[in-house]
Nucleic acid binder design. Structure first.
Length: 126
RNA sequence: CAAGCAAAUCCCUCUAUCGCCUCCUGAAAUAUGGAGGAGGAAAGUCCGGGCAACAUAGAGCAUCCUGCUUCCUAACGGGAAGACGCAUGGUAACAUGUGAUAGAAAGUGCCACAGAAAAUAAACCGCCAGUAGCAAUACCGGUAAGGGUGAAAACGUGAGGUAAGAGCUCACGGCUUUGCAUAGGAAUAUGCAUCGCGGUAAACCUCAGGAGUUGAAAGACCAAAUAGGUCCCGAACAUGAAGCUGCUCGUUUCAUCACUUCGGUGUAUUCGGGAUGGGUAGGUUGAUGGAGGACGGAAGCAAUUCCGCCCCUAGAUAAAUGAUAGAUAAGGUUGCUAUUCUUAGCAACUGAUACAGAACCCGGCUUAUGGAUUUGCAUUUUUU
RNA sequence: UGUCCGAUAGUGUAACUGGCAACACGUCUGGUUUUGGUCCAGAAGAGUCUAGGUUCGAGCCCUAGUCGGACAA
């Protein structure tokens, strides 16, 4: 049985690395997400990600937290089924930044579908 | 029974699967097992304090804040009780609501337009005396009663007084200063005497009280790689002239730096190695047991305080507390039945919901909010 | 987390010490021109972010809120 973990090691926590990702990484949009990615040399896990919801679009902290939790839940399933096998096959390590650019809260089911499509497109690009 | 007002309390449930954070167990781990994991406002950041660093003889000035009294409190611009004013209701007693409520009798300023005049004063109409004139009237002086203007007109009413008038004098009344007496702990109230009479201090200001500055991104500790600093050890030596040599390299002597006991030593430069201080990334701490809460008793009108006993209740750090499925409680909608026409029962569907997410911690204030329960208040209807 | 500013016609800005909310551009109407532009003449368009208070009177003073912005690493 597969384990759908999502631990602290799989998050990108360093401010400097995030700034580097913003300045050097390449990006594309796939509604309702905008994904910034760049490959790095060594990591203990295949990918480290940041989830971001802009304060300008969602004023209340409750809404931002809910969207981040939805995305995190969707990513937890998507990376185990989709992302990690492909990355291990290509021997790549990634830094990822997922920004939610939609204007309203949508259901968890549709976020899961959209995120799967977005990650497939990411795998085709690299 | 119903709706209303006020106060207090409670609310993200349970089961399954997957997952996150902290702690415990464990030799150890991201394993296994166990325990725990958002609020009344966590919000706004409007006040006050703890805590920390720095500064600091004392006093004054400046700046800012507060402003009826007493009490509560660690403290407050918060709260409690009271005083006074205003508004509404009431014949009144009083009730409810509300108030930045010290000082306008220290001084300065301002009061548009209108109006004669907006504050040491001032005369447009009017009233009165005098002079001139037959008279109308003119000149000069007195006068704040009356008119009109304005948000506000020199305290109001009456009498005396006067040529006409005027707090000019008196009586009553309103506000007010000071003193005394009584009541009260005080604000204040009542009485007597006395002084005074436009408003504005959310105008400057005066008086009284208070404020050191900066905030956890404070502060403390550990500390990789790289570069550079300091120290130690080891190795090497630049330039010129002459000699050795056919020439280069090399070597010797002398000079170019200092000291010298003439053997050398030191300084400077380069390379290698080691040690060490500061300190970056990063990490630990600060940082969650406290002005803590529940219950009982005592003091107090109350805010609150004291005593006893019990309880431990988030601790993340680019930031956890979630997702999916199902279940019901209160509630909601629809239908059916009974009925005093408003309730009750049954069935189906819906349904864990409003406002909203801890970021060092407390005490308040303000703002946003759907429901449930309890208590109190007065009102209406029905029955007895 | 903390500190500090601002909000006025469609747009950009004024309004001193509280006393009729002003200017420019834009808009509309008319004229000039064959037409458009330029130019000339005229008009409309706000009650000052919201609520409450002080005052005879508030854009201005005070309190609370809403929105926008700046600064401190």
């Amino acid at each position: 049985m597969k384990k759908y973990y999502f631990r602290k090691e799989e998050r990108l926590c360093s401010i400097k690395q995030i700034e580097q990702l913003y300045s050097l990484g390449s990006s594309f949009s796939f509604y309702p997400f905008r994904i910034i990615h760049s490959s790095v040399s060594t990591l203990t896990v295949p990918a480290q990600i940041v989830i971001s919801v802009p304060k300008r679009k969602f004023k209340r902290a409750v809404d931002r937290n809910r969207i981040k939790r939805q995305i995190r839940e969707a990513y937890r399933f998507a990376k185990t089924d989709l992302l990690y096998p492909a990355l291990i096959e290509k021997t790549l390590h990634l830094h990822l930044l997922i920004i939610y650019t939609g204007n309203e809260i949508i259901t968890t089911e549709s976020i899961r579908k959209k995120l799967n499509l977005a990650l497939e497109r990411l795998l085709n690009k690299i």
